[in-house]
Design a protein around this nucleic acid. Structure first.
Length: 230
DNA sequence: GCGACAG
DNA sequence: ATCTTGTCGC
C-alpha cells in the first residue's frame, strides 16, 4: 500500500520536537463516527516490531481475511532505529519501520490493528493515532499492559469490558478477550469508534488473549529477526 | 519532589 | 522490547 506524507525530512530528532509533533497530530485524528462495522471489514492488518541489540529491528505487517482469519499477505522490513524507547513516544521509535513494512503490501487493508495505544495516551497521540492519520486507514490499538489511566477490573467473562479513564475522560476500554484471563486495553487511533474496535477485537480473539493480527505479525518479525541475527 | 510509564 | 527454567494443564 502507498503511504503519503511519510517523508523522513521533518522527523523529530529530540523529545521536545516529538512532543510538539504529537500536539499537532492529535488535531488531525478522526474521532468522529463509528467507522467500519465488523461485518463491513474484509481485511485487517496487524503490525509489530522485534528489536535486536544496537538499534537493529524487523517490522512486520500481516493482512488477514477478517472472516476466516486466514493470512492473505505478509510483508517484512529489516532496518534500524536511533530513537530510544521513551514512554509516550513509542511511535517515533516504531513508525518508520512499520510504515516501510506496510508499503510492502500490495493491498490497502480495511482496518489496521497495532500493539500499544491510540488516544489512551498523555497527549492523546499514541501509536495508533499516528498510524491512522498517516495511512488514512481506520486504526486502533490493543495493548497488553496498563499505561496512564485508571480503570475498574472488567467482568470475568469474555466480552465484558470497563472504561479506561484519564481525568474523567473515557479514552478506551479494558476488554476481556478470554474468560478468566487478564484483559487487554483497547483504544482508538483514527477513523474507527470504540464500539466497532471492541467488536472487531472480539472477532480477532477466538483462541488467545491477543488478536490474531498481532500474534501473526509478532511471530513473523520475531522469526525473521532470529534468522537474520549474527 | 521523585518515581513510574505502551513496546 | 529482551533475557530465561521449570511447571501446570488441555
Amino acid at each position: 500500500m502507498r503511504i503519503r506524507g511519510a517523508s523522513p525530512g521533518e522527523w523529530p530528532a529530540t523529545e521536545a520536537e516529538a512532543i510538539a509533533a504529537q500536539e499537532r497530530l492529535r488535531e488531525a485524528a478522526d474521532l468522529t463516527g463509528p467507522g467500519p462495522a465488523p461485518d463491513e471489514v474484509r481485511t485487517v492488518a496487524g503490525v509489530d516490531v522485534a528489536y535486536a541489540d544496537g538499534g537493529g529491528l524487523v517490522a512486520a505487517a500481516v493482512v488477514l481475511d477478517a472472516a476466516t482469519l486466514t493470512v492473505v499477505e505478509e510483508s517484512v522490513h529489516a532496518g534500524h532505529t536511533d530513537f530510544p524507547y521513551v514512554p509516550g513516544l513509542l511511535a517515533f521509535r516504531e513508525l518508520p519501520s512499520v510504515v516501510a513494512a506496510l508499503e510492502g503490501l500490495t493491498r490497502r487493508p480495511d482496518v489496521l490493528v497495532c500493539d500499544g495505544y491510540g488516544i489512551a495516551h498523555p497527549r492523546r497521540a499514541g501509536l495508533a493515532v499516528h498510524l491512522g492519520v498517516l495511512t488514512g486507514v481506520p486504526c486502533y490499538g490493543v495493548a497488553k499492559t496498563p499505561f496512564l489511566f485508571t480503570y475498574e477490573q472488567p467482568g470475568h467473562e469474555r466480552g465484558s469490558w470497563s472504561p479506561l479513564t484519564i481525568d474523567g475522560e473515557q479514552v478506551g476500554r479494558a476488554l476481556r478477550t478470554r474468560t478468566g484471563v487478564k484483559p487487554v486495553f483497547v483504544s482508538v487511533g483514527s477513523g474507527i469508534g470504540i464500539d466497532h474496535a471492541t467488536a472487531l477485537t472480539l472477532r480477532l480473539t477466538p483462541a488467545y488473549r491477543q488478536p490474531e493480527t498481532t500474534r501473526r505479525a509478532d511471530h513473523l518479525c520475531r522469526t525473521r529477526l532470529a534468522s537474520s541475527a549474527p
